[in-house]
Amino acid sequence: MSVKYIPVQWNKNKWRYNAVMLAGVAAFLVLFIYVTPGVLNHDRAITPQIHNARAFGACAFIMLTVILCIGPMARLDRRFLPLLYNRRHFGVMTTFVALTHAGYVVNWYFAFSATPKFEAVLSANTSFGQLAGFPIEALGLFALLCLLVLATTSHDFWLKFLTPPVWKRLHYLIYAAYVAIVAHVTLGVLQDQQNHLLTFIVIASAACVGGTHLAAWRMDAAETRLQASDAWVTIGDVAQMREGYARIGLLPDGDRVAVFLLEGKLSAISNACAHQNGPLGEGKIIACLVTCPWHGFQYDVLSGRSPAPFTEMVPTYRVRVQDRAVQVHPDANPPGTHVDPIPLAATPEPEVMT
């Protein structure tokens, strides 16, 4: 499948992913609004509008925390990969929840302002030189604008139009949004209470995001150091290869390679789909074609080429078996280069055909 011919369609996994996400959002809001007011123990009585605003704000914060943890957790443990496949849906839903929070705030705090309410959001408080009473509205607005940009550009059209490198850099805005939200909450609601439950949640959430990213970075750095001593990179033992499946390895330059065992022979291609960097090593192989689990793009594991009439291509790699170790040379062949597969027990280097 290719965006040039067939639009990406929803499937059962996408519907299931979104159903579970919506159920989680609904459960959080019900718990916050109806079950835990006594546990939250607000220092002074608040109106239902403020309570609803805090409920949606807290939900958006937790959702964004989960989103930022999915990537490193998937690198640390492959069982988290299904959560990664449709993470963009999670981000769009988070944006709608954050917009609802902003709507409650604007329509309650600024609806009767002498100036237009949207203008009053930024003009009512300009005490930027102090922590107590800092204008957290500016932080919240910045975070919301970041989320809106990410949600708007999440469609495949923008990935194609902006090119994957630019699109990826643009979506790093999610980290700036998260920092702004942490500051927004810390300088806002956390200064207005004596109960430290929300304080603990905010600190634990931020620590979880930082901790998972640090752990994933250390794991990748350790693998890179181990592989740097040899030009050929060991992907695993021959006993770890399974017929019809791939074993994914990290190369010294940070790229990932997928080594497939098909009909007793080894082939290696880039693990990143040309469409949106989906994990090809997680896909199914049918008639020498691996299907990307994200959006269904297919590639020949011998050449890295999509079947005609599609034109997508990914790099291929040389493979060898050395002392029962499956190894890949880190220098990638140009996308679409055919490489003869080698028997799993073979030791000579494969021939590269141009």
Rank of each mutant, 00 (worst) to 15 (best):
S2G: 12
V3L: 15
I6P: 00
V8W: 04
Q9K: 13
W10P: 00
W10Q: 14
N13A: 10
N13D: 11
W15T: 06
R16G: 04
Y17R: 12
A19T: 15
V20W: 15
V25N: 06
A26H: 03
A26S: 14
V39Q: 03
L40G: 00
N41C: 04
N41D: 15
H42N: 05
A45D: 12
I50H: 12
I50L: 15
C59A: 15
A60E: 05
F61A: 10
M63T: 08
M63G: 08
C69I: 06
I70T: 08
G71H: 09
P72Q: 10
A74M: 08
A74W: 10
R78W: 08
R79W: 15
L81C: 06
L83I: 00
N86P: 01
R88M: 07
H89Y: 10
G91P: 09
G91T: 05
M93E: 13
M93H: 09
T95P: 07
T100E: 09
V105Q: 06
V106G: 06
Y109K: 05
A111I: 13
A120Y: 02
V121H: 01
F128E: 01
F128H: 00
Q130P: 00
L131G: 13
L131A: 14
A132K: 05
F134W: 13
F134A: 14
P135C: 09
A138I: 11
L141M: 13
L141T: 12
F142S: 13
L144S: 14
L145S: 09
L148H: 03
A151F: 04
A151W: 04
H155Q: 09
L159S: 00
F161C: 07
T163M: 12
P164S: 01
H171T: 14
Y175F: 15
A177R: 05
I181L: 06
L187K: 05
G188Q: 02
Q191S: 10
Q194G: 14
N195E: 13
H196C: 01
L198D: 00
L198I: 12
T199V: 06
F200S: 08
I201V: 15
I201P: 02
I203H: 03
S205C: 14
S205Q: 07
A207Y: 03
A207M: 13
G210I: 12
G211R: 04
A215Q: 01
A216R: 05
A216W: 07
D220E: 09
A221I: 00
L226H: 07
S229F: 06
G236V: 13
G236R: 13
A239E: 02
E243H: 12
G244I: 12
G244N: 07
Y245K: 10
P252Q: 11
D253Y: 14
G254N: 07
D255T: 13
D255F: 11
V257M: 11
L261P: 01
G264V: 09
K265G: 00
I269Y: 07
C273G: 14
C273Y: 14
A274D: 03
G278E: 01
L289A: 03
C292Q: 06
P293D: 11
G296P: 08
Y299K: 11
S303Q: 10
M313H: 05
R318P: 00
V321G: 11
A325G: 03
H329Q: 05
P330V: 04
N333C: 15
N333V: 11
P334I: 15
G336P: 11
P341M: 09
P341N: 10
A346L: 03
P348K: 10
M353I: 15
T354S: 13
